[in-house]
Structures are given as C-alpha cells and as structure tokens.
C-alpha cells in the first residue's frame, strides 16, 4: 500500500518537517545572523532530550501502560552523586561515569522489581521509585553545588569539528539504540512484547528478562544524561531533571513512535528533540514573555500530534 510513497509514510517525517520549519522561521527573524550559534545550542540541548527520549522510547515500546516516570529523579541523583564522588578530580572521571551507570542499573532493577514482584502498574511503580530517589538526591545534595572535573566540563561544553561533543555522544548512543531496536533480536523481542504480550510469551520470548533489561536500559540512559548534564551545566541541581519527565514522553510521541507500543523509531526522537528545543528558542527570538511562550509551546505540541494523527476508525 505504501510502496508508492515509502518516504512520506515514515512516521518520523513529521517531527523533522516541524523541526525544519521552526528552524527556518527562527532564522528568518534574525536574518540568518545566528544560524550557526542556534544550530550548536539546538544540537547540544536536543542531545540531552535524545538520551532520555531513547530510554523512554524503549520502555514505551513494551506496550500499553509501560512508562518510566523515574527519569527526572534518576537524572538528579546520578548527576549529584557522580559529581560528589569525582570531587573535581580529573582522574576520577571514568569511575564517576561507572558510578552514574551503576545508579542507573540499580534504579532500573528496582523499578522492574516493583513491577514484577508486587505487580504494581509501571506508572505507579516508577512514580513511587522516583519519590524515593528524589528524596535520596535531596538528602545527599544538601544544597551544595560541586563543580565537575575540569577536563569533563571542557569535554561537555566543547566541540569537535564544529559539532558539540554532547551531540556526538548522543549520536553514538542513538546509533547503538537504533542497532538494538532494528537489527538485534532484543529489538524484535520488545516490539513483539509491545504488540501482544501473550503471543510473545507463547512464542518463547523471555518476556521478563527482556522487560527487565528495558527498564534498566532506560534508567542507565537517564543516569548517563544526568552525568553529562551536570558536567555541562557546571554542577548538579535538585531540579535539573524536572523538565525531562514531560520532555522524554513528548519526544517519543511527537517522534512518531506508537504510544500503544510495539512500533518505535530512533530518527523521530532526534527530529522531535530538535523541534522541542527550536520551538522554545523561536518563541524566545520573537521576544514573547514566559506565559505566551508556554501557551504556544503547548498548542504547537497539540497541533503536531493532531496533524500526525488520523480520525478514529480510519485504521
């Protein structure tokens, strides 16, 4: 059916078109003056959303009801603890990274433990976990702002060949996740589980192991994002993860992944992340106040999702 227009039928097309349109509208206003700076900022901030978005995407692929609300708390805790551990020493950068990933691993395991052992719906399990993790972060943070090691801060804010390092990291991780999703047996498994859990179980897919691994991957990606974000912004703050809860869900859905699970794509996460940052900077460029900016952001999100939708019953 879609053989005639394989390109137009790509679910991620909408987010890229929206991002491109927003970029052009922004550049038009400045007369092209800030095109380079805007691209750099966009790539950097989009990369953070991509990292958490990829993890959330894998979880949402698992099917209805699967979602990870502990993303912001994980970001905050891993940023806080990793920076505290590294204590501005360059030699501890890699162990610090290991700590961050270890935190992600533990939170992911705990999330799935609650889901599986207590049979709590994932939304509530990850929500309760996020309350606990957030408390841990508040308790360990104590309002101190510890600086990241200099070399790490330089890496996080630096560029290679004109492209921000963070964006490159995001790209590498995206390629890895793309490979996982599209080329590995694990990707087939999570899509199968998302399409029909019972059928997947019948087909002999290790459902529990796959789901567990997915929640762990999501938490690790969030923890990694927290590590980079804290290094990028010169220290961890208690509210650093807050905006990524809605962001991680928004980029998955705007990127064209099925909210009901079973069908996801990586390029859309990039398109949507670029779009989300560009919308904010476009509204900033046009000089709107905070209130109007928020309202327009919301309306644009809804407009994109409506534009990409079909009327009920058309499927």
């Amino acid at each position: 059916m879609n053989a005639l227009k394989p390109f137009l039928s790509k679910p991620w097309l909408w987010s890229w078109l929206a991002a491109l349109a927003t970029f052009i509208v922004t550049i038009l206003f400045t007369g092209g003056a800030s095109a380079f700076g805007l691209s750099q900022a966009t790539l950097t901030f989009a990369a953070f959303s991509v990292l958490v978005g990829l993890g959330q995407m894998l979880v949402i692929t698992l099917g209805p009801g699967n979602i990870d609300l502990s993303v912001p708390a994980t970001i905050t805790l891993s940023g806080t603890l990793a920076l505290k551990f590294m204590d501005t020493q360059d030699t501890l950068i890699l162990p610090g990274l290991a700590i961050a990933i270890g935190i992600g691993l533990c939170i992911g395991l705990a999330n799935y433990g609650l889901i599986k052992l207590l049979r709590i719906p994932p939304i509530i399990a990850t929500l309760s976990m996020s309350f606990l993790v957030q408390s841990m972060a508040i308790w360990s943070n104590r309002g101190l702002r510890i600086k990241p090691p200099e070399a790490l801060a330089a890496f996080a804010t630096g560029t290679t060949l004109g492209i921000p390092n963070i964006a490159l990291v995001g790209l590498v991780v995206s390629l890895a996740v793309w490979w996982l999703l599209e080329r590995s047996i694990y990707g087939r498994w999570i899509s199968a589980i998302g399409q029909k859990l019972a059928a997947a179980r019948m087909a002999g897919i290790p459902v529990d192991g796959t789901r567990c691994l997915t929640y762990i991957l999501c938490a690790i990606l969030a923890a990694f994002c927290g590590y980079l974000l804290a290094s990028f912004s010169g220290g961890a703050a208690l509210n650093m993860g807050a905006e990524y809860l809605l962001m991680s869900i928004a980029v998955v859905v705007i990127g064209g992944s099925a909210v009901a699970g079973g069908n996801s794509n990586v390029p859309g996460i990039w398109g949507a992340s670029l779009f989300m940052f560009l919308v904010v900077s476009m509204l900033n460029t046009y000089g709107f106040g905070a209130g109007i900016r928020l309202i327009l952001t919301g309306l644009i999100i809804i407009a994109v999702i409506v534009a990409a939708s079909r009327p009920a019953g058309a499927r």
């Binding site: 869900i249 999702i305 939708s309 079909r310 009327p311 009920a312």
Partner: peptide
C-alpha cells in the same frame, strides 16, 4: 482523532 490522552494533556 483517537489521540493519546497523555500527549494532549501534556501539551
């Protein structure tokens, strides 16, 4: 439009 309520209410 058969939209996901999570995203619309998010917006």
């Amino acid at each position: 439009r058969d939209l996901p309520s999570i995203v619309v209410t998010l917006g």
